[in-house]
Design a protein around this nucleic acid. Structure first.
Lengths: 145, 145
DNA sequence: AATTTATAGTTGATATTGTCTACTAAACAG
DNA sequence: CTGTTTAGTAGACAATATCAACTATAAATT
């Protein structure tokens, strides 16, 4: 199948969708059973030093309610532990279990293969420019408080 | 809220999601009652000379089943007409009704406002480069038959 | 021409993701 | 102490996506 697009919006729509589909498929094929959102959450928790649910909202742009449910499932699957936040009693610190860390590692490799396929034939500079422009766009619509 | 990301994948994920949310909101606020996918379909039908459901699949990358349902609803809402394809008996030609055409026009304006916000501060050349790079990526993962 | 194989579209079941509202409890500001 | 904001939870529901089975036609094969 040949993918086509025309506006910036369509372009992004296609790129993101195809990325999602391919990553999800690659993850499944490597024998792991994780939904796309679950993977995303695990990755953020892995990166963020003292990750909280609220942090996940900020990083993902998704609704609080959705985050709550995702975290709940991840906890049920033994991938995330919650501990009370040291200074904020409303909040909880999220941490990956050892199993989850190994999982995230494997997922990263699989997803990097997908990403390599995407950026094949692009120079370092071209890719850097693409990312820089994309970030500017994100900044444009990111509300400053 | 401040939007953040880190890999190419995260960047695209955020850009597309925010775009979707903002466009959908803008469309709603202008008094129109159309889901995101429905809008997308109408736009493609509007652009494609002899659009068929299959064409919608190719252009959107979405599943046949989903397309069928979307078209069915659009027809029910009096936005799309189907007529038998002149040369292929399995296929049907999709066409916008007058009402749908007017709708698409209004939606375009609303969405262009959103897009303008995105690309604010970007030079023509920067934007062109972004789109060109994005298209290359899409080509990279587009299966050649 | 008859037979196989591929394609366009449909349907049903189900899973995943997203949205909205209302709520609790802790934090914070005055 | 009081009112307001913030972090997270829960329920109901809508939108989107996935998968498999099926029909009818088209196209290819022999």
């Amino acid at each position: 199948m040949t993918i086509e697009q025309d506006t910036v919006r369509d372009l992004l729509w296609q790129l993101a969708f195809q990325f999602k589909v391919r990553c999800h498929q690659a993850v499944r094929e490597s024998g792991l059973d994780l939904g796309g959102m679950h993977v995303r959450m695990l990755q953020v928790i892995d990166e963020e030093p003292q990750c909280t649910a609220n942090r996940l909202c900020q990083r993902s742009g998704r609704d609080k309610a959705q985050i709550t449910r995702l975290v709940k499932e991840l906890e049920r699957q033994g991938l995330v532990k919650r501990s009370p936040h040291p200074t904020d009693g409303r909040s909880q610190v999220l941490q990956l279990t050892g199993r989850a860390k190994r999982l995230v590692g494997r997922v990263r490799e699989v997803e990097q293969d997908v990403e390599r396929q995407y950026v094949e034939g692009l120079s370092e500079r071209e890719l850097a420019a693409f990312v820089a422009t994309g970030r500017k766009m994100l900044d444009n619509v990111s509300e400053v408080d």
